[in-house]
Computed example of a mutant assay.
Amino acid sequence: MIKVVGIGAGGKTLTLEAIEAIKKAEVIIGYSRYIEMIRGYIENAEIISSNVNEIGQRIDDSLKFSNKNTIVISSGDPMIYGMGSRLFKYNVEIIPGVTAASLASSVAKVPLDDFVTISLSTYSRSLKEIENKLINAINGNFTLVIYNINPVARKESALLAENTLKKYAIDWDYYMVYNARRANQRLIHGKINSLDIKNANMDTILMVKKW
Rank of each mutant, 00 (worst) to 15 (best):
residue 97 G to E: 10
residue 99 T to E: 05
residue 111 P to G: 08
residue 131 E to A: 09
residue 91 N to S: 15
residue 155 K to P: 02
residue 144 L to K: 01
residue 69 N to F: 05
residue 66 S to G: 03
residue 164 T to C: 04
residue 124 S to I: 12
residue 99 T to P: 10
residue 114 D to R: 10
residue 66 S to A: 07
residue 127 L to M: 14
residue 124 S to N: 14
residue 102 S to W: 09
residue 78 P to N: 04
residue 67 N to A: 13
residue 68 K to S: 08
residue 75 S to C: 09
residue 98 V to I: 15
residue 146 I to S: 03
residue 100 A to C: 05
residue 97 G to R: 08
residue 127 L to D: 13
residue 114 D to K: 05
residue 86 R to K: 15
residue 83 M to Y: 10
residue 100 A to K: 04
residue 96 P to K: 11
residue 133 K to Q: 00
residue 154 R to V: 09
residue 165 L to E: 05
residue 156 E to T: 11
residue 76 G to P: 10
residue 147 Y to I: 11
residue 123 Y to G: 13
residue 69 N to A: 02
residue 111 P to R: 00
residue 160 L to P: 06
residue 93 E to N: 15
residue 149 I to E: 01
residue 98 V to H: 11
residue 125 R to D: 09
residue 166 K to N: 03
residue 112 L to K: 10
residue 102 S to L: 14
residue 116 V to P: 00
residue 81 Y to A: 06
residue 122 T to P: 06
residue 167 K to I: 04
residue 80 I to A: 12
residue 112 L to W: 11
residue 120 L to T: 03
residue 71 I to C: 07
residue 164 T to F: 03
residue 86 R to H: 15
residue 107 V to A: 02
residue 105 S to Q: 14
residue 120 L to W: 05
residue 109 K to T: 07
residue 121 S to H: 13
residue 143 T to R: 04
residue 134 L to Y: 01
residue 114 D to C: 05
residue 109 K to M: 04
residue 150 N to I: 02
residue 159 L to C: 03
residue 115 F to Q: 05
residue 166 K to S: 07
residue 123 Y to H: 13
residue 98 V to S: 09
residue 123 Y to Q: 15
residue 87 L to Y: 10
residue 133 K to Y: 00
residue 93 E to V: 15
residue 166 K to H: 04
residue 137 A to V: 06
residue 77 D to W: 13
residue 82 G to H: 04
residue 98 V to G: 11
residue 136 N to A: 08
residue 111 P to H: 09
residue 140 G to H: 01
residue 159 L to E: 11
residue 125 R to W: 09
residue 118 I to K: 04
residue 131 E to F: 05
residue 156 E to N: 12
residue 63 L to N: 12
residue 124 S to M: 08
residue 81 Y to M: 07
residue 121 S to P: 14
residue 62 S to I: 08
residue 118 I to A: 02
residue 80 I to V: 15
residue 145 V to H: 03
residue 156 E to P: 01
residue 106 S to H: 06
residue 84 G to M: 02
residue 113 D to E: 12
residue 84 G to Y: 05
residue 66 S to L: 03
residue 96 P to D: 00
residue 123 Y to M: 15
residue 107 V to R: 01
residue 158 A to L: 01
residue 79 M to S: 13
residue 155 K to T: 11
residue 150 N to L: 03
residue 117 T to V: 02
residue 89 K to E: 14
residue 128 K to I: 15
residue 73 I to D: 08
residue 156 E to V: 07
residue 140 G to M: 02
residue 138 I to A: 07
residue 103 L to V: 08
residue 110 V to M: 01
residue 158 A to C: 04
residue 161 A to C: 13
residue 167 K to P: 03
residue 160 L to T: 01
residue 75 S to W: 07
residue 76 G to D: 04
residue 62 S to T: 07
residue 165 L to Q: 00
residue 88 F to S: 14
residue 158 A to P: 01
residue 143 T to L: 02
residue 88 F to Q: 13
residue 151 P to G: 04
residue 152 V to T: 14
residue 151 P to E: 01
residue 122 T to A: 12
residue 100 A to R: 07
residue 89 K to V: 13
residue 86 R to I: 15
residue 121 S to E: 10
residue 147 Y to W: 06
residue 153 A to M: 15
residue 130 I to E: 06
residue 71 I to L: 01
residue 124 S to H: 14
residue 121 S to M: 13
residue 138 I to W: 07
residue 113 D to P: 13
residue 104 A to E: 13
residue 92 V to H: 10
residue 126 S to I: 05
residue 118 I to Q: 00
residue 152 V to E: 06
residue 67 N to I: 12
residue 88 F to Y: 12
residue 82 G to F: 10
